[in-house]
Computed example of a mutant assay.
Amino acid sequence: MKSGVRHGEYKVAGGKLVAADVTVDDATIANVHINGDFFLEPDEALPRLNNALVGMPESAAVDALTARLDDAVRGAHLVGFTTAAIAIAVRRALGFATGWADHTFEILHPAPMPPAMHLALDEVLTAEVGRGTRPPTLRLWEWDTRAIIIGSFQSLRNEVDLEESKAEGVTVVRRISGGGAMFVEPGNGVTYSLYVPASLVEGLSFEQSYAFLDDWVLGGLRSIGIDATYQPLNDITSALGKIGGAAQKRLANGGVLHHAMMSYDVDADKMFRVLRIGREKLSDKGTKSAKKRVDPLRSQTGMTREAVMEALKDHFRERYDTVDGTLRPEEIAAATTLAAEKFTNPQWTARIP
């Protein structure tokens, strides 16, 4: 059976737009037309790209499409895009991958809540998006107490000074995503979670998806005067230093969690007392010792934290289709149970002692 032309696009993070117009005949790719604002030398490489995927199964995965494209343009120069980007655009055209414009995002900004509840909501909402019972969602966090959140694979005793944390009234919790520990207090940071379906990051490695899912917040920070950039693997930074970091978790049901913490005005002396941050870890961050405040968002904008968060939400609304939403009673109930059974359970917190 023959179908009409299908169109797909993929914007390379920090690079160019790649578009693919594809036709299919009897579940086989019959014609491909690649276009975009990229650079390609020599010109003769473009028809080779267009012809490379003809005859491949409509269901071919990104890796298989990329391998065929690599063979076709060996020796050519691709600037601002990659063969993988073409493959993703083709998969989007065929309906196996989605783009930002294919979704309406719900924005949540609930009242302050305990650290364990935040982490439980991350798991609950990610699973719901994977099941298709919740739309893709952006949630901004508000903290009701001081906390240390350690990564899923970190050693509790190696990362946290438990005696000092207890003395400072700091709650220690473990999240489901990897990455490093972070110290938070009410009003000292900007934390958010993105819950998206796997189709949005179809064909992207973990490393590529960090840049892809962080791109909106870089634009939001630039809109308030911060020249923010992405620093692999998972840092958000500027010319004046690191602003924050992100982490991810992909669930088996197709839900993807991407969350980030950015510093508004952190008490670094306190942070260094409760966290065991070694010299080796600091050595690659250009840091010799703790400063009294770590305040990139406050010092670089002069804005209140609340104004920064509103500006970021406004930027997200400008870029994507959004609706404002609230947590549903059943989501709160499920997260409350999970917080009690898992995220406040010492066996989970100390699963890697």
Rank of each mutant, 00 (worst) to 15 (best):
S263N: 12
E310T: 10
F272V: 07
E306N: 10
S289I: 06
A307H: 08
A260W: 12
K291N: 07
F316H: 01
G278L: 03
R273Q: 04
V266Q: 10
Y264F: 15
D314T: 10
A290S: 05
D314K: 15
E280G: 08
A268H: 00
G254T: 14
R276D: 03
V308G: 00
K281H: 11
R293L: 05
M303F: 15
T301I: 02
R293P: 00
A260N: 05
A311E: 01
H258L: 05
D269Y: 15
M309W: 01
K281T: 13
S263G: 10
E280Q: 12
H315F: 12
T301W: 00
R273S: 06
L312K: 05
S263T: 06
I277P: 05
M303G: 03
S283P: 09
K285C: 10
D269V: 08
L275V: 09
Q300M: 12
E306Y: 14
D269N: 14
G254K: 15
K270W: 15
A260E: 02
R293G: 02
G286N: 06
A260L: 02
A268D: 07
R273L: 02
K313N: 05
I277S: 03
D267T: 00
D295P: 09
K281Y: 12
L257F: 00
K285T: 10
K292E: 12
H259S: 06
K313Y: 08
V266K: 13
P296Y: 09
K270Y: 11
A268N: 08
V256H: 10
K288L: 14
L275Y: 09
L275M: 10
D265K: 13
E310Q: 09
V266N: 09
M261T: 11
L297S: 10
D267K: 00
E310C: 01
K281R: 14
K292P: 11
A260F: 04
R273A: 13
F316C: 02
A268P: 00
D265N: 08
V294M: 14
G286T: 02
K292Q: 11
A260H: 06
V256G: 01
R273G: 03
A290H: 04
V274Y: 03
R305Q: 14
H315E: 01
I277F: 09
A307E: 07
H258G: 02
D265C: 02
V274S: 11
R293Q: 12
D314E: 03
